[in-house]
Design a protein around this nucleic acid. Sequence first.
DNA 1: CGACTGTCGAGTGTCGACAGTTTGAGAATT
DNA 2: AATTCTCAAACTGTCGACACTCGACAGTCG
Lengths: 227, 227
Amino acid sequence: MTSITRGFATIQQRDLVNQIADMLTEALLKGDFAPGVHLAEAQLARDFGVSRAPVREAARLLESRGMLVSQPRRGFFVRTFNDAELDDVYDLRLCLERHAIRLLAGKLTPDMEAALSDQLESMRRVARDGTGVQQIEEDVAFHRMLCEFSGNQRLVRVFDELCHEMRFCILLIGQLYDDPVRVADTHEPIIEALRTRDPDACEAALDYHIGIAQQRVVEMFRERETS
Amino acid sequence: MTSITRGFATIQQRDLVNQIADMLTEALLKGDFAPGVHLAEAQLARDFGVSRAPVREAARLLESRGMLVSQPRRGFFVRTFNDAELDDVYDLRLCLERHAIRLLAGKLTPDMEAALSDQLESMRRVARDGTGVQQIEEDVAFHRMLCEFSGNQRLVRVFDELCHEMRFCILLIGQLYDDPVRVADTHEPIIEALRTRDPDACEAALDYHIGIAQQRVVEMFRERETS
DNA sequence: CGACTGTCGAGTGTCGACAGTTTGAGAATT
DNA sequence: AATTCTCAAACTGTCGACACTCGACAGTCG
């Protein structure tokens, strides 16, 4: 458990694996590695100034999150997406959130409602003067809250996994929101529907919202792919 | 990377990690390790006659499947379940399969219908003269087929993860089906509903079926827990 | 000219070792 | 007797090294 200084970052005590995983994730989301490219363990280990063991474990972690894939005896590669896979991810996300919001509709407390409103407010704030990454994070946080408040922790875990993949796709596309304020506003109807406590109304509001998001992402993804 | 033994038969091309993971899985499902118990890497490595490295990786794999949990600097422990977690798993499973069967209702082909019927037949066969484990596997295979035929591969992946956890719970309970033939028969209405191609009818049939299964598992789990 | 074979470098799979941490039992103290 | 302290054993995190495999390239033979 040595402390290593290399370049900018000072890696210390806390589990190397998680730190490496975080750094790799960041690098992937920044687009430092092209999709499909091979990640050599030894090279990464040199870059991070550590041995191959923690790099391997970090890579396995990212593999379980669907950001890397591995082939026996060949190592790790940056995950690639195609249209169908992206569709699957959004379809599954819709499935989860629908279920979550229906559960939530039956148990919404004033606290939850307030938390969601607060989150919407944060979203509007960064929509005005935040970075693209911040906007996405606030957006994700709102939807994650829906899942959390549903009460099903297992569902939240799957949602988180999907989020990793969605972020990956989205930042692979580049700029997403041309009008972030308007995007933030489209979350308002969801909160309103929840206030009615009517599961069907909630589902409809959610469907509409996610439908737009999906359409936009898939469309931009296709454009990028054919270029 | 060892042993190319025994003529042509066993070329151990597959790496140690997967083999160890399989063996560990089997041991866990056989109940060789009590829930919550600590798994020492070095001990396992000695037992398997390998070094700690592949054992660690296998353990990480099982962790990502939800069968083990890890604590920093303390190692791996056999996953424990409580009522709430079991409820969450079944709730999520229902959510996935509902979605899958609705998708499937709109695209069912004769081939798919035949495959499902065949699977039901297998289920009935092992219900008469198969082991408990076989019965569970055939049952799972039927439901997995529903997910596969939905066309969403990502959904299948999550379903598989959930299955690992359900198997774990079920075999932790012990005997599950008191009348396996009757259990197999309860899948018939699902196929019939699919034939009508009506999503609502399909969902209803599925809800009924899974509801019974869940009720039974949860009930037995609670009994066992209080004993 | 094309197909096959041998060789070489790069990279993964696995191992044994070391260092720091956690745990639990027993000694020491209140 | 209960509690705290001490310390050694057991264990995890990390490292560097070696063996084996895969793919590329060049040379050989038809």
